Amino acid sequence: MQEKWDVLEVLRHSRHDWLNRIQLIKGYMATGQSDQLEETITKIVADSLNEAKICSLQIPEFAEFIITYNWKPRTIVLDYEILGEPCSLKNLDEVMTVWIQNFLEKLESWVHIYEENFVSLTIEINDKTVSFFFDFRGKLTKKEDMLKWIVSSSNDSSKIRMMSYFCETEECSIEFKMEK
């Protein structure tokens, strides 16, 4: 079950994130590292735009889970990007949230905890479908379990249509689509 954040907790986490970003900018400015400074500012702007986009999709449970995922100590860092024009995905909120919660929970148990593990999620919104692209980079300890789960999870839901998947010990890619 997902923890519900109260307003003060959300503000505390958000303030902490922004202070970290500002300290990073100040550090690059102080050391004259203009390339890293520009890259950091560009990343902050992109992250803020993606956060605004995910909030405009009318999928509050999914958006909350994605935005707050990295606020807790995790064995995986999640990054996300939203492509396409924002629209209402309200009818997909529950199935999307349950699927990604299950996936990341299982993935956390399948990775080597002393390695850097990253998941990049790209959500592409088209006229009739929403595509999800998951790219994992890190180190899996249970590749076979992950492969079994990927196949079975797409069979468990009539809304999720698995398009492709690839899985090796240090990288995995999954693509699935959902009708809007």
Rank of each mutant, 00 (worst) to 15 (best):
E39A: 15
T40D: 07
I41R: 00
T42R: 07
T42C: 03
T42E: 04
T42N: 06
I44W: 01
V45G: 03
V45T: 03
A46H: 06
D47N: 03
D47S: 02
N50V: 02
E51C: 02
A52M: 05
A52H: 02
I54C: 00
C55P: 01
C55R: 07
L57Y: 03
L57K: 04
I59N: 00
I59G: 00
P60S: 00
P60C: 01
A63Q: 02
A63Y: 01
A63V: 01
E64V: 00
F65K: 00
F65H: 00
I67D: 00
I67M: 01
T68S: 12
Y69T: 00
N70L: 05
P73G: 08
R74F: 12
I76M: 05
I76D: 02
L78R: 09
L83T: 11
P86E: 13
P86H: 11
C87Y: 08
N91H: 13
N91S: 12
L92T: 02
D93L: 00
E94P: 14
M96W: 09
T97R: 14
V98A: 14
V98H: 14
W99L: 13
W99N: 15
Q101R: 15
N102K: 15
N102G: 15
L104M: 14
E105R: 14
L107E: 06
E108R: 10
E108T: 09
S109A: 14
W110R: 13
W110A: 12
V111A: 04
V111T: 04
V111S: 01
I113D: 12
I113F: 12
E115K: 09
E116W: 15
N117Q: 09
V119I: 13
S120K: 14
L121F: 05
T122A: 15
T122P: 07
T122M: 12
I123C: 09
I123Y: 03
I123P: 05
I125G: 08
N126H: 06
N126C: 03
N126T: 05
K128E: 15
K128S: 15
T129G: 09
F132A: 13
F133K: 13
F134G: 03
F134K: 08
D135Q: 13
D135P: 08
D135W: 11
F136A: 00
K139L: 09
L140S: 01
T141G: 09
K142D: 11
K142P: 03
E144F: 06
D145H: 04
D145Q: 07
M146E: 13
K148D: 08
W149P: 06
W149V: 07
W149C: 08
W149N: 09
W149Q: 09
I150F: 05
V151H: 14
V151F: 13
V151E: 14
S152K: 14
S152L: 12
S153E: 13
S153N: 13
S154P: 09
N155G: 04
D156A: 15
I160L: 15
M162F: 08
M163P: 01
S164H: 03
Y165I: 02
F166Y: 09
C167S: 10
C167K: 09
T169H: 05
E170L: 02
E171Q: 08
S173T: 04
S173Y: 06
I174M: 03
I174A: 01
E175Y: 07
K177D: 08
